[in-house]
C-alpha cells in the first residue's frame, strides 16, 4: 500500500487524475480525491507530495496545505501498517473509552498520535464514529470493533501483522 520513492504518479495514475479533474467545472474540486490517491499510493501526504499535487492543479502549494491540514484523515507523517482509532466522544467515554485507551497505550507502548517503533500500529483518539450502540468502540483500518474489553482488544491486536 505504500511506495516510498520520490513522489511521482505513474502514467495510469496521472490519467486518473485528469479524469477526476474533468468531472468538475473547476478542477480544484478534484483535490480531495487526488489527495486520497496520494495517501493510498504513498502511505501519507508529505510536503513534497503537496507540492507535486499543487503542480498538477496549477495551485500555490499553500492552498493544498490548507486542505491537507483541514482533514484529520489525511496523514502528514508516515503512519503504521494499521491505524487504530478509538472513539472518545460522549457515549464511548461514559462506557469506558479512557480504560480502552489506557489499555492500548500500555499494550502498544506508544501514546495517542504515535506509531509503534516496528511501524505496525498508529494509535489515534477520534470523535464520534457514529456507532454508539456498540460503545466503547474503535476503528481498525476499515473495520469497526465494538463492546470492547481488554481481552477483546488483545485479540484484535494479535490479528494485526
Amino acid at each position: 500500500m505504500s511506495r516510498p520513492a520520490a513522489v511521482q504518479f505513474t502514467a495510469g495514475e496521472l490519467a486518473l487524475v485528469r479524469r477526476l479533474q474533468a468531472l468538475y467545472p473547476d478542477k480544484r474540486a478534484a483535490l480531495l480525491p487526488v489527495l486520497q490517491l496520494v495517501q493510498d499510493t504513498f502511505g501519507y501526504i508529505s510536503l513534497e507530495a503537496e507540492e507535486y499535487v499543487a503542480g498538477l492543479f496549477d495551485l500555490p502549494p499553500a492552498h493544498v496545505h490548507e486542505v491537507v491540514t483541514f482533514y484529520t484523515l489525511f496523514f502528514q507523517e508516515p503512519k503504521g501498517r494499521h491505524v487504530v482509532s478509538v472513539c472518545h466522544n460522549l457515549t464511548c467515554h461514559l462506557e469506558g473509552a479512557p480504560t480502552v485507551l489506557a489499555h492500548l497505550r500500555m499494550r502498544l507502548g506508544v501514546d495517542v498520535g504515535a506509531t509503534t517503533a516496528d511501524g505496525r500500529v498508529t494509535l489515534l483518539a477520534v470523535e464520534c464514529l457514529c456507532a454508539c450502540e456498540m460503545a466503547p468502540m474503535l476503528q481498525v483500518d476499515d473495520r469497526y470493533e465494538g463492546n470492547l474489553t481488554p481481552a477483546k482488544i488483545d485479540r484484535i491486536l494479535e490479528g494485526l501483522e
Binding site: 500555490p60 499553500a62 492552498h63 490548507e66 491540514t69
Partner: peptide, 22 residues
Amino acid sequence: GTGELGIFQRGDHSEIGLFPGK
C-alpha cells in the same frame, strides 16, 4: 498572484501561515 499565504488547520485552531519553508 503569488499565493504564498493560506489558512491551515480548522475550527479555533485555524491559523494563517506560509507553506512550510516558503
